[in-house]
Amino acid sequence: MMPASRRLRLVAAPHLHGGRAVPRLMLHSVIALLPVTVFAVVVFGLAALATIVVAILACLLAERAFAPPSALGDGSAMLTGLLLGLSLPPALPLWMVALGGFLAIGVGKHLFGGLGAPVFHPVLVGRVFLQAAFPAAMAQAWVAPLTGARATELPATSLALPFMSPAAPYDGLSGATPLTAVKAGDTGAPLADLWLGTVAGSVGETSALLLLLGGIYLVAMRVIDWRIPVALLATVAVLGAALHGLDAERHPAMLTTLGSGGLMLGAWFLASDPSVSPMTRRGAWIYGLAIGALVVVIRQYSGQAEGVMYALLLGSALTPHIDRWTRPQPLPEGAER
């Protein structure tokens, strides 16, 4: 009865798909980071641009080396590179940036099994390596915002040769970041500068406002689970306000705490990465809360000025356990059909 030529495809159900796709999620994340990226280049000039470009190229190179060529198309290596570039001090020697990027993908991602498998965020693996290997550079390679020569000159340290002492000392470039100032007992930067981002700091971490906007974009596009940044930032806000209330001399005001350091970048773009965060909604609350508490504790009570990176790493280490504690319980028998 039917023409014999008719060939029907045998495809498994469901025959509809909601349209979420990994490359698209990566693309949305890059879009969300564009404002802060442009802003970083405006404020820190060539140094920021060079750091970002080198970080991305190093990540793409490592992805090409460790994964099949098709993997470059999913955009995840590109995003890792961009995030790493944004999280580093602007005047860091570029060879260190390249090494960090290569290790982020090579060790942080592919040693753990590739896309989706990392236990720790690859960006943090790259960054923690740099922090451990080159503590002096990581602590001092800051650039003052909006310097006159930023558009035409790279800081001398950026072009330092691998494993050589930089041509110029770091502290010749600029003073401290707001957090190191706070740690040293100063009041830090004015609140407006802090939130706008016209302060010294990592390439893309200074503008809390633009990062917040990017985060809201990610939530609106349903790229990330809003519970994680909300729980994280709320915890930091509450604990920060409490500490400030107890001792306003030693502890910065709540808005200073929220607007400084890597907190916004970490909360919206690193903590929320699906691979390193819990799979359940309840778990997301616990995870965000734990990281938020760790941020405050490390910032206030450790020798470090900034605690976001370590808080995120510790939070990720908790993820498998949180997933186990919050394993979904099936509805009672008979709920189906």
Partner: peptide, 24 residues
């Protein structure tokens, strides 16, 4: 319907956990 792209590794986003009506 658009052709289903080749499947990629699980990124552990948990969307499926939230979507399962039986909470499996």
């Amino acid at each position: 319907t658009a052709d289903v792209p080749a499947s990629m590794p699980c990124i552990r986003c948990g969307e499926c956990v939230a979507a399962c009506p039986l909470e499996l």
